[in-house]
Structure formats: structure tokens, C-alpha cells
Design a protein around this nucleic acid. Structure first.
Lengths: 220, 220
DNA sequence: GTCTATACGTTGATAGAC
DNA sequence: GTCTATCAACGTATAGAC
């Protein structure tokens, strides 16, 4: 009664659940649009239509288009960081690399939007992500490269520049997300199935492991 | 004297050289902008400013923004088609594959814009290129895949799905063009040098050839 | 919290003087 | 062929009633 707000009349949504729910719905719709047209190419209107809300509501929950975009990117980078377990120099190279390829391909399959938004941002110069790149990313990158270098120093794999190995892992796996429309045209299907990804992963694992001088881990 | 046009008063440019020169300047500027922001994200104004012409001139030479875009894409696809020599089943697999990787990486180095525009178009669904995809591309793709399959049938290389091998060749090489800004941030440089590309090509060639069960061709 | 109406810049495209 | 002036449509963002 004494409450001033109207829609959530009772304390039923007292913790701001509607707010959270709307925010997430907007973020999801924004991700779809940004993945299709990039930052500049996406309009607030198209996002609003996709969520089914007036576009004024978007500005109520997010200050500006750029603010919304940054939030979408932040979610993606969080997702990214949590998706891959850390490699260590003590791991068995073959199984660790195979597991990494599997996880990366699984990410391409389940989060293709994230890959696409990320790719568009990087192609456009990636200014928005400069802060992330200058800290977390470079550090993360060095960590992985050092692990590969340690394996090489221990004579466990061929002397391949770790930096370019990481580029290969990323480039080949993200291709299946970013270029999915092209892949579908070639294969004549409407979308890639789980089995398509399994086959792609198997092929990729075979080539990269063998190409690095590693023998595949036993199934057990 | 009897001529009606004004600027090219004499017959000095009788063959329409100014027209051709302007058209190409516009196309080059348009490619820069489309590579940065995609089709929707690019404005005619930004292109006009880059060429140093009023935007009305762009509409004089090209009917519409879409017409200009299609022309840019056509040029890119022509460039693409002419850049790679045809593989045949009679070739030596190792040297032919190495040569293909070299040519593809050289293309990423010298025509990064083309790769970026192409990538943006594909990420956005690639509707614009449906005609090309439905004819030249599928045919081209089948041709290459058949060559790889022939090599496999002849026992010259590991039984890797040719389709996924092509994806790997494309994905890994285009990564160096599309993600150049990301690569530069990691390496701390402002741009990738010729030597960077040489090293990347060598690593890629090593992994892919060995991964396919091929031994590198002798230098001679 | 929600939504209509609107301010005001930018967009693609054209008309028409030169 | 070139360029200024202009159009209607659409862009982001906000004001203010409910």
C-alpha cells in the first residue's frame, strides 16, 4: 500500500526479479542482433522488436547502446574464461590438447553467437575490448604459451611456436561457429548437427595432435 | 566544341578514364569501410569522406549502397578465384598442399580487407552471396574435396575427411587476416611483418602436412 | 516499471544549379 | 561530370503521462 511502484504491487518480486528477467531477455536479444550485424549495424529498434518491448525500456535498463553492447561483451568474455580448464605443464600433452580442442569445439557448437560477436568486434579493430586484451587476455595467452613451451623443452612434442599453435586452435575451431552459414551451404544442410561437430572434432584432433608429434590418448 | 560534357573538355579522357579512375577510387574506399563495419554498419557518407568526394557522386557512379557493395564483393570473389592454382589428383600431395597453404597465407597478408569483408558477410548470413555460393563455390569445393579423396584412395595420405581439411586450411589461414588486430595485441606489435607471416606459414605447413601423414617436400 | 510521443541528428537517395 | 540543397525515413535518446 505504502509502496510507490505500481506493476510489482506486492513484495512478490521484491528482490528485483522482473528487472533481472527483463535485463537478461534484452541481453539475449541484443546478442542475437549484434552477432548478425555488429555494433554499428545493429539498431536499438531491432533489439526491442526481438524482445517484444518498446525501445524506451531498453534505455531504462541500459544507459545507452554502447552500454548494452559492453555488457553483452562482458558476458561473453566471462563465458569464455570459464569454459576452458587450465592446462598445466604436468598434464599429458596429448590428452590435454585433445580435451582443449573438444572444449573449444563444444563452445563453437553451443555458443556460436558469442564467437560471432567476438569475431566481428576483432575484425572491426576491437577497440571496445582493449581493456580486457591488455590485462586478462595477454596474461592468459602467455600462460598457455608457456605450457606448450614447457612440453617442447621436455621433448614431449615437436618444436612448434606455441603462439602459432594457439592461433591454429582458435582459428580452426571458431571457423565452425563464425562460418556456419557457409558450411551449411557446402554440406547442403540447414544446420550443423551434433554428429557433424563430433566428426569435425575428430578430424581436427587427429591432424593437430599428429602434426605436433603427439600420439592420441587411449580411449580409456 | 560540339561536345556537351564540361569537365573533360577535350577528348583527353575520351575513353572514360576519369569515370574508371573515380569508380576504382570509390570501390577501394568502400572496401576499407565495409571491412571495418560490414554492410549495415557502413554509411555512404563515411565512404565519400574517405575518397574525398561528395556523397552524391557515389550515387552517380553506383545506383545504390547495395549496388556498390555487390560490386565490391564481386571484385573480391574474382580476386579469390584467380589467386589459387588448381590442384589435381596427379600432383604430389605434400608439395601441392604446401603450395596451397603458402598461397592462402600470402593472400591473407596482401588482401586482408578481402578476407574481412568476406568474413563479415558470411557471419551475417551471406545472403548477398547466395548466387555465387550456389554455383561456382559448391563446384569449386567439390573439385578440391575430390582431389584430396583421390590422394587418400591412393594411400598417399591419412583418411581425413576432405571437407574438414578444407575448413582447416581456410579457417587457420584466414585467422591471420581477420584477427590481425587481436594477433597484434598479443605480440605487442603494431602490425604483422612479412617475417611473422613466413613463420606462421612454416608452422602451419608443418602441422597440417605431418598431421595428414605427409612428409614435407624437399627444398629443391 | 511501462509505454506513447517526441526531440533531433544521421541515413540513403534525389533534384537541380553549375 | 560535379556539387549544394533537400527529402523522407530511420537512428539514438529522452520527457512525461500512466
Amino acid at each position: 500500500m505504502t509502496s510507490a511502484s505500481k506493476s510489482p504491487t506486492k513484495a512478490e518480486k521484491s528482490t528485483g526479479q522482473i528487472r533481472l528477467k527483463n535485463q537478461q531477455a534484452i541481453l539475449a536479444a541484443a546478442a542475437e542482433e549484434f552477432a548478425l550485424h555488429g555494433f554499428k549495424g545493429t539498431s536499438m529498434n531491432s533489439i526491442a522488436q526481438r524482445v517484444g518491448l518498446p525501445k524506451a525500456n531498453l534505455h531504462y535498463y541500459f544507459n545507452s547502446k554502447e552500454g548494452l553492447y559492453v555488457e553483452v561483451m562482458r558476458n561473453i568474455l566471462d563465458l569464455w574464461d570459464s569454459a576452458f580448464s587450465n592446462l598445466t605443464a604436468e598434464d599429458d600433452p596429448a590428452s590435454a590438447l585433445a580435451e582443449y580442442i573438444r572444449a573449444k569445439m563444444e563452445f563453437s557448437r553451443r555458443q556460436p553467437q558469442a564467437s560471432k560477436i567476438f569475431a566481428m568486434e576483432v575484425i572491426s579493430g576491437g577497440e571496445c575490448m582493449s581493456e580486457h586484451f591488455n590485462h586478462n587476455y595477454q596474461e592468459w595467452f602467455r600462460g598457455r604459451a608457456d605450457v606448450f613451451q614447457a612440453w617442447i623443452d621436455q621433448g614431449k612434442m615437436d618444436p612448434i611456436d606455441p603462439v602459432h599453435l594457439i592461433f591454429l586452435l582458435w582459428g580452426s575451431s571458431q571457423y565452425y561457429a563464425d562460418h556456419s552459414s557457409s558450411i551449411c551451404r557446402v554440406s547442403g544442410r540447414s544446420r550443423q548437427t551434433k554428429e557433424d561437430f563430433a566428426k569435425a572434432t575428430a578430424n581436427l584432433t587427429h591432424i593437430i595432435l599428429k602434426g605436433c608429434g603427439l600420439t592420441p590418448p587411449s580411449k580409456a
